[in-house]
Design a protein around this nucleic acid. Structure first.
Lengths: 344, 344
DNA sequence: CTGAAAGCGCTAACAG
DNA sequence: CTGTTAGCGCTTTCAG
């Protein structure tokens, strides 16, 4: 017998019917102990593994949810995923992860992939093109970005998606105010493309304006990656050198990897962090916590974000018609060693 | 019509038979252009997506392979995955990834999960317990670690697994010789648990012995993480302070994150890299390439590793009875800024 | 509590 | 080239 064993094989070997095997698999309540044991033994001996394909087909449910993230290279997703699993695992759901960047690179549509796989719900934690998530016929929750919200409101027929996101506007303000409170006035902001960066930038600009300080934004048209962090920092330095005020005494970067790029540029310029220039990141990614880096940063609570998103998915599966929910998480600054008071 | 559309719906709408729809889906050669268009149009209008579950069940194949990695937090896997996909995507295969650490944490067996999902092949790039991969009845390739090899030889009935790994022994030797050639003699090695670290350690010890230098190994009983890199570096420093020779002039860490921990310890001790102490990592992970870090490291060619592993999987699916293959990749050192000649 | 029977959506021979 | 016919392995009524 070389082929994969089926319930039939198990049933036969255990001397029971096929349905009984099905029952002990989903450990149903009223099954005679003896038979249950016999079935388990047969499963063991045969190396039987139930076929998900068959069960999905028969039950019209896979008890799985798809999680779409932006980019495996940005460790931000790790905590998000941990949060998602912390609520989905106990509920008996499986989660499968796909990386938008990678899927697009190979010309595929990850949402189609998930749907073909019969996921019972979808959590999108990436900036997916709206048409990609339009018309999915399973519960959809958008995690971590607010940009899709308005677009979705119109296009989803059967109720808009649930949304949980970090309040990036508030985070940007928080960051600027934090630096301002420490006495900094020449605070540069390193930004980039994409909705989260945009919100953070807006928050920063508002807080600077309120304090009567001049907003100094660089790198807006680049990526939110290390290279652009480096470039934008160099620009800030060059601009500061020519300007009356001198170089910035503090820098707020749109995320941690940009901050890391900025730190490299500062070191190359012979400037010390935080003695000469304070650097504040965003995301509280694992990067920021390394002892060699010790980056002060704004925590968007990605783990909690994941957990809330998962809970929303669960709730919606239970009550598809409930009104859509929106939740904004309040960011907080995490002090490490890259920020200090201005010495002026 | 709220339910998910099926081929029947598509066929009806396009005015053709179900089998014709099936044919255009797998774009078969001899189909009338008009009908093909009609079918495509119907698919579009209905938002039809083929059911993987049904097709898996009917065809006994999913055209998917499972990739088991160690830990999403270690960015090592990113390039590995890119390599895997670079050969599997064009071949029309889908790859699904699972993280061993996470699965074990929630008490699941990822291999069972993959098998239940009907993957057509399995690539294991993690130190999975041998019993976990015993008795999988699909093509199996072990990527990146040699430790499972001897165990598997015995336990797999239908031919052992294919294996492709970095030659960690050679890498350890290479690292030590590289530092030796730069004039270093007091070269500490920061190690940890697990097979790769063990091989790297062995290579290091051999090269040191051959050069008549004393092996200085620390951290063997800890993890291969940043914290242990930090701790082991501290121990090396303390030992060097008491010893006749003084502290090491160079450090070789079992991987990049340990090296990063070491760099933190060195800075805390007031030592500069590379002026006072050279630091060499292993893996050439994305971490090492950051401008702020610029870690010299040993490249295990993870992308190529992934590509080779995927090719082996493909080959074995095509020829299940072919003799098992083993491939060892030769590591190379990547020079960045954390290593220099000794000044002695 | 247990067994029989009917499909879930699709593929894979075939015969038209 | 097209339509028919069986299942794939499992869940789920529904009678015993």
């Amino acid at each position: 017998m070389n082929a994969r064993p089926t319930i039939y094989d198990v049933a036969q070997r255990a001397g029971v019917s096929k349905s009984l095997v099905s029952l002990v698999l989903r450990d149903a309540p009223h099954v005679a102990e003896a038979k249950r044991e016999a079935v388990k033994k047969a499963i063991q001996e045969l190396g039987y593994r139930p076929s998900r394909a068959a069960s999905a087909l028969a039950s019209q449910s896979t008890r799985s949810v798809g999680l779409l993230i932006d980019d495996f290279r940005n460790p931000w997703f790790v905590e998000l995923l941990a949060g998602v699993r912390s609520v989905l695992d106990p509920a008996g759901y499986t989660v499968t992860v796909a990386d938008l960047r990678l899927e697009e690179a190979s010309g595929r549509n990850p949402v189609d992939g998930f749907l073909a796989q019969h996921v019972d719900a979808l959590v999108v934690a990436a900036e997916a093109p709206p048409e990609m998530v339009r018309d999915v016929r399973v519960p959809l929750v958008i995690a971590g970005t607010r940009s899709l919200t308005p677009l979705l409101g119109k296009s989803l027929d059967d109720g808009a998606a649930d949304v949980v996101a970090g309040d990036d506007d508030a985070g940007g303000q928080l960051a600027a105010r934090h630096l301002l409170a420490l006495g900094h006035r020449r605070i540069a902001h390193l930004s980039g493309q994409g909705a989260p960066a945009e919100h953070r930038r807006r928050g920063y600009v508002r807080a600077m304006a309120e304090a009567g300080a001049e907003p100094l934004v660089y790198g807006v048209d680049g990526g939110t990656d290390e290279a652009n962090g480096f470039r934008a920092m160099r620009q800030a330095l060059d601009a500061g050198g020519r300007a009356a005020g001198g170089p910035p005494t503090a820098v707020f970067a749109a995320n941690d990897v940009m901050a890391l790029g900025a730190m490299a540029a500062l070191r190359d310029a012979g400037l010390r962090v935080p003695e000469d220039v304070s650097v504040l990141g965003y995301d509280d990614s694992p990067l920021a916590a390394y002892g060699y880096i010790r980056l002060s940063t704004v925590d968007g609570h990605s783990r909690r974000l994941g957990a809330e998103a998962a809970q929303m998915a669960l709730d919606r599966m239970a009550a598809p018609a409930a009104p859509p929910r929106r939740l904004l998480l309040e960011p907080a600054v995490v002090e490490r060693s890259s920020v200090r008071e201005t010495i002026a």
